[in-house]
Design a protein around this nucleic acid. Structure first.
Lengths: 122, 122
DNA sequence: CGTCAATATTGACATCCGTCGAGGCAGGCG
DNA sequence: CGCCTGCCTCGACGGATGTCAATATTGACG
């Protein structure tokens, strides 16, 4: 954990964790394990500050933004950093360092999978 | 709060609270108030037990189920009741008493609004 | 090398939240 | 009426979570 460069922040492979998780929730009940993994994604968006940060990034030019672009959400800088980490760990964001700045962008496949999960057309 | 029959459980009107909330998260940043209201919905699905209960109801015949149909998720009956209440308060479920049983069904408009929120096609 | 700016981490604290057992209420049935 | 079944509410407890100040880290620039 300590010998990893920040240039490639360590995130579990999105494909393996959350992306093609489950069929729409109408198709069949989720297993306990599926529910456990899926809940992490919804929980990540279940906080007002994180939801604002996510929408700030998603609506930003190119679907990415550096932390300095989105830090004005009414909480301290460490708290912003904490929330961005949560969103990244949930697989919803990826990050990349460029010079002094760290850029976050949305992980489209993961977000699309969440959206598909809520597709109620049987 | 005490003079209300259980037959019509008191839920805030979905139309007023969450249903037509916001455009896709890519369109513009959420305001603090929008984020506050929207986070309630995502938080409701951000728990494994609630996610299983929701999928059990959504995948059940007719998109509805009575509590006795879905109580086998590994927690006590009061806890099931607590989670169903959370989902109902978030606007994701509605409930109705029929004889001895209480039936829960998904609120399609609200769930569709959540799905649309995550639609990343700009 | 020293400094500065941007971001992350640590540690502490208060609050929130999931869980359970106990008990309450409503409706069906004898 | 009295009892049983299905579900909800209450109160308590422990663990998770959001927040901040302080500090660390990283990279750019003299």
């Amino acid at each position: 954990m300590s010998n990893l460069s920040v240039r490639e922040l360590p995130v579990l492979q999105p494909e393996e964790t959350v992306a093609p998780c489950c069929p729409p929730l109408t198709e069949r009940p989720l297993s306990a394990e599926e529910a456990e993994r899926t809940a992490v994604m919804f929980k990540a968006l279940g906080d007002p500050v994180r939801l604002r940060l996510f929408s700030l990034i998603a609506s930003h030019e190119g679907g990415e933004a550096c932390v300095c672009d989105i830090s004005d959400v009414g909480v301290s800088q460490p708290t912003v950093s904490h929330h961005l980490k949560k969103l990244r760990e949930a697989g919803l964001l990826t990050s990349e360092r460029r010079a002094t700045w760290v850029y976050y962008k949305v992980a489209p496949e993961v977000v699309a999978a969440m959206s598909a999960l809520l597709d109620l057309r049987h």
